[in-house]
Design a protein around this nucleic acid. Structure first.
Lengths: 197, 197
DNA sequence: TATTATAGCGAACGATAGGTCACTTGTCAA
DNA sequence: TTGACAAGTGACCTATCGTTCGCTATAATA
């Protein structure tokens, strides 16, 4: 039950920080959401800032485990339709998984005030996606599925619009269905342009 | 001198809100930056929230004047190189103009907590750019400069990556030069793909 | 010149923030 | 059975927040 509370505090902190920001979140509300009183928090963390630090540590570890190693990369699609399918699968997860949504919101909100949040934001929103798809597109070009081109440029041209639509879902959840449809349309347009055959 | 102070408060509020967020900004520091004491602010605004409201009013008016009317649209480029030039000109302004940068940061930070900030964010970051380039690409397709295609899709595919690089500059100003170079490379790659001849 | 509105000031307000501390409770090992 | 420790509680501290108020200096108006 002990470590559980520490984890529950971190979970609730992610929830509230991502909604109201670090400054807009107060310990009393945070702990009250867990059925605790604010002083209880200090049995698990030294300070509010300490919660923030632990939360970012956790996010960094999670990101490294999830996207940092080559083993966790998705397999290269062997058809153009496979690329669409893989894209839609990834989009669906990243758009609907509440934890991932909150992480993205948090990084978006706090990127200008916290150094590590800034670094993670660039990884999450730009380089991570580009790197992943650079590899995928390299593989697909070698298999003759994609027109020969600069794979990194194509990866960027592919992921940036999708990323923009994901951010739109974070901002306006009502538009989620539209955005997902747009992602698929965009993906098909992309393979229509760069796909072979 | 009277209205001047009111404007100066709004300017400084934009500066501090965009750096530290609404909650992270306090009236004492804000007014002190203008050589005033905090109570003087209340001669010009009813409350802190009132500053926020006035600031968003101003931003909405500014955006409508700048991008809302057809007259202020840039002229259609009549060469592919003209598209690159126009893109780089717009990117240069939007990346280096401090007021625009602060506006973008503010909308990024506060988009999840303020309804009007959310709406403006979607306009600034998505629909505004897409709409503008949809028109431009329609014109260029009619002139035979761009391959016949869905102009809205192309506009989205063109502006989203550029927008992502602009956001990167906001987050990591050190990478500004790289990002600008990337925008040009991307723009040329785009006309290489969709340009005629 | 007398009057009035404006804009600034400093002191003070209540509310709330993060944080500390002495205390209680429950668990488990010695 | 007892002692130690972890986890939770409520009272309390200090700092700071946004806000109000009475005062003053100035400048425009009548």
């Amino acid at each position: 039950m002990a470590k559980d509370t520490k984890e529950r505090i971190l979970d609730e902190a992610l929830r509230q920080f991502s909604q109201k920001g670090y400054d807009g979140t107060n310990i009393r509300e945070l702990t009250a959401s867990l059925g605790l009183v604010k002083s209880s928090m200090y049995k698990h963390f030294k300070s509010k800032q300490d919660i923030w630090n632990a939360l970012l540590d956790k996010m960094i570890v999670y990101y490294a485990e999830r996207f940092g190693s080559a083993e966790n990369l998705p397999p290269f699609p062997d058809t153009l339709e496979g690329l669409v399918a893989m894209t839609m699968k990834m989009a669906d997860v990243t758009i609907h998984d509440e934890m991932i949504i909150m992480t993205r919101k948090l990084l978006t909100i706090e990127q200008f005030r916290d150094e590590r949040a800034r670094e993670l934001a660039t990884k999450h929103f730009m380089t991570g996606l580009t790197d992943m798809f650079t590899h995928i597109f390299e593989g697909m070009m070698n298999k003759g599925l994609l027109r020969q081109d600069d794979p990194e440029m194509l990866a960027f041209a592919y992921t940036a619009p999708i990323s923009a639509l994901i951010h739109l879902c974070d901002r306006e959840p009502d538009k989620t269905d539209d955005a997902i449809a747009q992602i698929e349309t965009f993906s098909r347009h992309f393979i229509g342009t760069y796909g072979v055959e």
